[in-house]
């Protein structure tokens, strides 16, 4: 598929955890991401949903090479990037930017807003004069709804929502083709969340940016995404278009997630039939055998503990990894 912006094929990320005693170091490998595949088209939004420990942040960091890939292939515009050399990286890296969860922590407290936003320019647009850079920074600030008169302020003088806008301004200044948003609104207040979501949607529409939107909140994901991927303990459970996933969730985990989200409407919230999962998610260091979800699944049978389910295609663009789903 030539048209895809990003192709992720069987990507695996492994971490080492120290697990020894005073005299011997023992290391346990665990797979934060296990053979995940998906594609992303230009100016599309893919929502990535999952609970803590499901590896969504690892996946984001693996794509931008902050974390080493154990195996798998990342293809950007038809070119394999997993094997690329350092000098070729810039074309890839300047087109993928990241927006982080904690707005204040992702900004260097000793730098002014102008220095923070122009950092990508310092690395990828060295030919520009400092005046041109400043002009670009001001424009980016206006674009994300910050007054350019605040260019010489420091991050601690801003509120959380404004800090997130600074982070977004830094992400768009190189006019990237893809922005990965790692829980961009979960640290913000409700009224500010809505502002940032609107801003992201707005930017995407204007600049034709593709978004990889990571969140634990299905209602946010539903609002912003075209397609949604559900992760559990580093494995893909279900991937489908927004309408398919929300009207016809097929994997038991997706169903449980949907039913767990509270609805801000007393009458419908109280009439709902809840199908609660039991217990917490198991530790990703020691995942269950077979299907990783089986320990919390109502439908689990013998086969679930023996064999890991393959991803089945039940419809165009709708894949589910469950033994008990038929075509």
């Amino acid at each position: 598929m030539k048209d895809n912006l990003l192709d992720i094929e069987n990507v695996t990320v492994k971490y080492k955890v120290k697990n020894g005693n005073l005299f011997f170091n023992r290391y346990n490998d665990f797979k934060a991401i296990d053979r995940v595949s998906f594609t992303l088209a230009p100016s599309e939004t893919l929502g990535l949903v999952g609970e803590s420990g499901c590896g969504k942040s690892s996946l984001a960091r693996a794509i931008v090479k902050l974390v080493r890939l154990e195996s798998g292939k990342v293809t950007w515009l038809g070119k394999d990037w997993t094997l690329s050399q350092k000098n070729e990286d810039s074309q890839f890296k300047e087109n993928i930017q990241l927006v982080f969860q904690d707005p204040l922590a992702s900004l260097n407290p000793r730098m002014t807003v102008s220095e923070i936003i122009s950092e990508p320019l310092e690395n990828y647009r060295r030919e520009l004069t400092s005046l041109q850079k400043k002009e670009l920074v001001k424009q980016a600030m206006e674009t994300v709804g910050l007054s350019s008169s605040m260019i010489n302020r420091y991050p601690h003088e801003f509120s959380g929502g404004q800090c997130q806008r600074i982070g977004i301004a830094r992400a768009i200044i190189l006019k990237p083709k893809l922005i990965i948003c790692d829980e961009p609104v979960s640290a913000l207040d409700v009224s500010i969340q809505a502002q940032v979501i609107n801003l992201l949607k707005d930017l995407q529409r204007r600049f034709n940016i593709a978004l990889l939107f990571i969140s634990h909140d299905l209602s946010v994901v539903k609002h912003i995404s075209d397609r949604v991927m559900v992760l559990y303990l580093g494995r893909v459970m279900e991937i489908a278009s927004v309408n398919d996933l929300f009207s016809n969730p097929t994997h038991p985990y997706s169903k449980a997630l949907l039913s767990a989200i509270p609805i801000p409407d007393p009458i419908s919230e109280r009439q709902r039939k809840r199908d609660n999962l039991v217990g917490d998610a198991p530790s990703p260091i020691f995942p269950p055998s077979g299907c990783v979800f089986r320990t919390r699944c109502r439908n689990s049978t013998n086969i679930c503990s023996i064999k890991e389910p393959e991803e089945k295609k039940i419809k165009l663009g709708h894949r589910v990894a469950c033994h008990h789903v038929s075509y």
């Binding site: 634990h216 609660n276 917490d280």
Partner: peptide, 8 residues
């Protein structure tokens, strides 16, 4: 907490 645990 995670949403599924929040519901519980």
């Amino acid at each position: 907490l995670d949403v599924t645990v929040q519901a519980q």
